[in-house]
């Protein structure tokens, strides 16, 4: 029995904004299936009542004073932009609200 279908892989690819060629989608599906099959190993561990760990090392909450620093030089800020208009980044038309 397979753990992940081609359709699921394509749904996830869309979420991650990746487009997969048909053969690529096939390959990914079988490889992800093998990996998910392997990680299913975890299901044999009883984790009832075990708190999840996000960071293994105990860390205190660091807070920053509300003091503004100098912003980036505007040229530096947009120098890497593939496309720009003045000091703004340029993208294909954004349909308001559409989370592309």
């Amino acid at each position: 029995m397979s753990r992940i279908t081609r359709q699921e892989v394509e749904r996830v690819a869309a979420l991650a904004r990746l487009e997969l060629a048909p053969d690529e989608a096939e390959r990914m599906t079988s490889q992800l299936d093998a990996i998910l099959d392997y990680v299913a190993l975890l299901s044999e561990v009883d984790t009832t009542g075990i708190a999840p760990t996000s960071h293994a090392v105990p860390l205190r909450t660091p807070l920053r004073d509300d003091r503004p620093g100098p912003p980036l030089d505007p040229d530096d800020a947009v120098r890497n932009a593939p496309e720009r208009e003045g000091s703004a980044f340029l993208v294909p038309k954004v349909i308001e609200g559409e989370e592309s």
């Binding site: 509300d66 003091r67 503004p68 620093g69 912003p71 505007p74 000091s87 703004a88 980044f89």
Partner: peptide
């Protein structure tokens, strides 16, 4: 005076991307 997760200044009506740090970008 500064942003939630960076020391970039909070300003209104500035030129585009004139109030950003590496974190904002």
């Amino acid at each position: 005076a500064s942003k939630l997760f960076s020391n970039a200044p909070v300003v209104y009506g500035a030129e585009p991307n004139h109030a950003v740090t590496p974190v904002c970008l």
